[in-house]
Design a protein around this nucleic acid. Structure first.
Length: 588
RNA sequence: CGGGAUGUAGCGCAGCUUGGUAGCGUACUGGUUUCGGGAACCAGGGGUCGGGGGUUCAAAUCCCCCCAUCCCGACCA
């Protein structure tokens, strides 16, 4: 019996925790930051010896980095399994046929890394796995009785990003958890979606991260919905819009702007032409005329899938092309090129375009309707019209929500004021509908024996990005401050005088006891000076540090320190284990 | 893809203008002392100066081409 328990403990430790001696481990910390790193998490991961760059956007995961990645993966795996999703593993290299079938071989641009095998057949390195999953499901699932099903994997992906940057934050090769659900009908798909939403909340809670779930743009794929999970960090690449009343949050592309403007209380003035040489930007124009930027009517010519329209927004607002695209239900919308402007703007160069006299349909943002006595382009170089007014001087076909929200806007959902924060997109869940099931013929027979396409959802988490985001959110000038749940090692034992027998013995004892409890313990037994060990410990970011040295040991004590707060307690050596456990508990 | 910059020892940098035997800091190896907050001294090892071509008696340095890496932009006229 005893032997069985011991065996179990050994296995348990091997899989779920255990100790490591730093003298026998591999954490190549750097004293100086490689010049290539710009953002906090990138610098910290390089300095802490977690990653090494192999090529642009492609990194080695060194042991410490891999440990953190595995922690995140295990939290994700546990919650995915709990939600009823089933893990499998699909190939990273995929045949072009799959992608031709779904129509994405030509649609997907240069981000898709295409490769050929020795027989000159086309393959790609998978940036995502809708096609492959759909192929599996259509091969084996034919009846409503086998549905719903949700399959997921944790796999290395490759996207040949235009501009990889910020280390693991936007790499080309990265690790992703992706899940795909298949349902018999819309209601079922909504249930599957809800389960994933709940699982994602649990995952990011379990990771110990501060995050928010926001409504996201669902893009051109179906009229369904989508949510993003954002880890909040000042250094985030994305803007999160939320109402200060807490009733709404969304990303910038999606965040709704209301038709809730009061008309400006101004007397209507006669329109007048003004020479405005070299005022290409709104700021230059406003400065030249000495009027506020918001009095300027910004006119832009937009190429919506080959058709051209003019869009008007207030000078201090920005046009949101995603909203334009969705308004027309078009696959693409972009600002017109200079050549196209020359054709469609009556010869006026960019900067002097105005709605009056254009042979294009004019659309305007809601905020424009409230404007009075505006400055607009005269469609002639170096000429603007001041005191122009809607109805008298220009017309608009339709007003709509066509702009980016800004701080202080009134939220049309709950009436609060918009607040902008920065976030890092770590998860995205998506109701796909039948896009892939229809193009790839993933159908099932219902109770009546009729063929129906399955309703799909897809759900992604950037595992490596979660790790980077955790650092971005939790660090100080000394280094990383791991949330306990993601920490590669929860505790470090720093032996300050490894050559003193008493110190070495006690370090050894405490090390064995803590690792015996299933904790991930790093024992810094190196023959290094105290300063080196402390600095490394802070850089690597162990949540709890136990310092054992002859000075405090002379009084029978050791020091236990919390990385996050710097809080240190000198505890009796007998109480060390319980003090560590207590601190770890407090940090969870 | 456009603009800017950089490439010299593992890492951080100088040298380049004005061509003439490749340097500093740190890291690394050996030794002595030290060692509870990145130790001191002594002695060492380590370089296709991103690659190719050109000019020259002579190129890290000047010229041309290429490559790589980073930053900014590629939506606000």
């Amino acid at each position: 019996m005893y032997r069985i328990i011991v065996t179990f403990l050994l296995i348990f430790n091997h899989h779920f925790g255990g100790g490591m001696r730093l003298s026998k481990y591999f954490i190549p910390t750097l004293r100086e930051v490689p010049a290539e790193a710009e953002v906090v998490s990138h610098k910290a991961m390089l300095r802490a010896g977690m990653i090494k760059k192999l090529a642009s956007g492609i990194y080695d995961y060194l042991p410490l980095g891999l440990k953190a990645i595995r922690k995140a993966e295990n939290i994700i795996r546990k919650n995915m399994d709990l939600s009823g999703a089933i893990e499998l593993l699909m190939p990273s290299v995929q045949p072009a046929e799959m992608w031709e079938e779904s129509g994405r071989w030509s649609y997907y641009g240069k981000e898709l890394l295409r490769i050929k095998d020795r027989h000159d057949r086309n393959f790609c390195f998978g940036p995502t796995h809708e096609e492959v999953t759909t192929d599996i499901v259509r091969s084996f699932i034919t009846s409503y009785k086998q549905l719903p099903i949700n399959l997921y994997q944790i796999q290395t992906k490759f996207r040949d990003e235009v501009r990889p940057r910020f280390g693991l934050m936007r790499g080309r090769e990265f690790i992703m958890k992706d899940a795909y659900s298949f349902d018999v009908d819309d209601a079922g798909a909504n249930v599957s979606y809800g389960k994933m939403r709940d699982a994602y909340c649990r995952i990011f809670d379990d990771c110990g991260l501060k995050y928010t779930m926001v409504e996201a743009d669902s893009g051109a794929i179906g009229g369904s919905y989508s949510h993003e999970f954002m880890v909040l960090a000042d250094t985030g690449e994305d803007t999160v819009i939320s109402s200060d009343k807490g009733g709404y949050s969304a990303n910038l592309e999606k965040a709704v702007c209301g038709d809730n403007w009061d008309e400006w209380k101004e007397e209507i003035l006669p329109a007048e032409k003004k020479e405005t040489p070299n005022t290409r930007t709104v700021e230059e124009l406003a400065a030249f005329l000495d009027v506020p930027v918001m009095k300027i009517l910004k006119a832009m010519i937009v190429n919506v899938d080959g058709s051209f329209y003019c869009f008007l927004v207030r000078g201090d607002h920005e046009l949101n092309l995603a909203k334009v695209k969705n308004f027309f239900g078009a696959p693409s919308a972009e600002l017109a090129s200079y050549d196209d402007i020359a054709v469609h703007a009556e010869g006026a160069p960019a900067g002097f375009i105005g709605p009056a006299g254009l042979k294009l349909e004019i659309y305007a943002d809601y905020a424009v309707r409230a404007m009075k006595n505006v400055v607009m382009g005269a469609n002639v170089k170096d000429l603007h019209i001041i005191n122009a007014n809607f109805g008298r001087d220009f017309d608009v076909k339709t007003f709509g929500d066509f702009r980016n929200a800004i701080e202080g806007d009134t939220c049309p959902v709950d009436g609060g004021k918009y607040i902008l924060t920065r976030g890092i997109e770590v998860g995205h869940i998506f109701k796909l509908g039948t896009k892939y099931s229809e193009s790839m013929n993933a159908v099932y027979l219902d109770k009546e024996g009729k063929r129906n396409p399955m309703i799909m959802g897809c759900y992604g988490i950037g595992v490596t990005r979660v790790v980077a985001a955790a650092i971005e959110q939790n660090h100080d000038e000394k280094g990383i401050i791991w949330p306990v749940q993601l920490a590669p090692f929860q505790v470090v034992i720093v032996s300050l005088n490894p050559n003193e027998q008493a110190v070495a013995d006690l370090s050894e004892t405490i090390y064995k006891e803590l690792s015996g409890l299933g904790l991930d313990v790093m024992y810094d037994d190196r023959d290094e000076r105290a300063g080196v060990k402390f600095t490394d410990a802070e850089l690597v970011g162990y949540p709890v540090r136990v310092a054992i040295g002859k000075k405090s040991l002379a009084e029978g004590k050791v020091e236990v320190t919390i990385r996050k707060t710097g809080e240190t307690a000198a505890v009796k050596k007998e109480d060390c284990i319980s003090a560590v456990m207590e601190m770890l508990e407090k940090l969870r």
